[in-house]
Amino acid sequence: MTKYIKGFLDYRFLLVELVKRGINLKYRRSYLGIIWSLIEPLMTTTVLVIVFGALFNRLSDRTFATYIMCGRLTFSFFSTGTKVACHAIRSNASMIKKVYVPKYFYPLSSILYNFIIYLISLLVLIPVMIYSHLMPTLRVWKVFPAMFTLLIVTIGVGVILCVLDVFFRDVEYLWNVATMIIMYLSAIFYPVERLEKHGLSWLLNLNPLYCIINLFRGALMGYSNSLWEFAYPLVFGIFVFTFGFWLLKKKQDEFILHL
């Protein structure tokens, strides 16, 4: 274990550089740069609020904007984070073939830079909450366990994907489909009651991402969350995280033969 910690410390500067590269390259040569991480969710959420607000008779309910924004931001971090991580080993093949670097750095750094962009994009919640006439309550502390669990889950899933992707190129396409399904099961742009009416809320509760989104909503909109919503995603996250790194450790020496 100490060996791994030492390895991590030896290369921490590389991790910083890789994260910097991700952020730098994402918006390079665009005029607005990092501001896009605020504008983009704002624009898409506006459309979602109008369309689904009309569809579900929620146009008069101003909190619906915060409701959608919480889901959208959280989900888009999860989906871009895992997608980029899925690619991470193969897109850095030229480096891997040349120099030894701990392999987990590639998926980890790509998720971390997306996480930083995500943290910046959270700023957009301030105007949206003002629009929704929502004042932060004491329950706002719940964003921290929510963000932490989100990060753990994303890293775990991302690492598993990146290992599989080295051996099976199909994983990338399969995951595109899977994220789509996860999106519909996360209640991002529809009110949860709609599913509850049909007795399908257990489906949502099995989705750790939905639990995380709901923690966020509870934190910002000031309602309470069940213990399940705290515990389940955390346990799930720890499981995929451990499994992911175990799988990576087991398989990383074979990567080079498949690149």
Binding site: F13, E17, R21, L25, S94
Partner: peptide, 26 residues
């Protein structure tokens, strides 16, 4: 080994020196 492979094409020389240097463990 294989000089010049592993650079980030979008990066300038300045940025690549830091990135590449860090890969080499500097």
């Amino acid at each position: 080994l294989e000089l010049g492979a592993g650079f980030e094409k979008e990066y300038t020389a300045r940025e690549n020196i830091y990135l590449y240097g860090s890969i080499l463990g500097y």
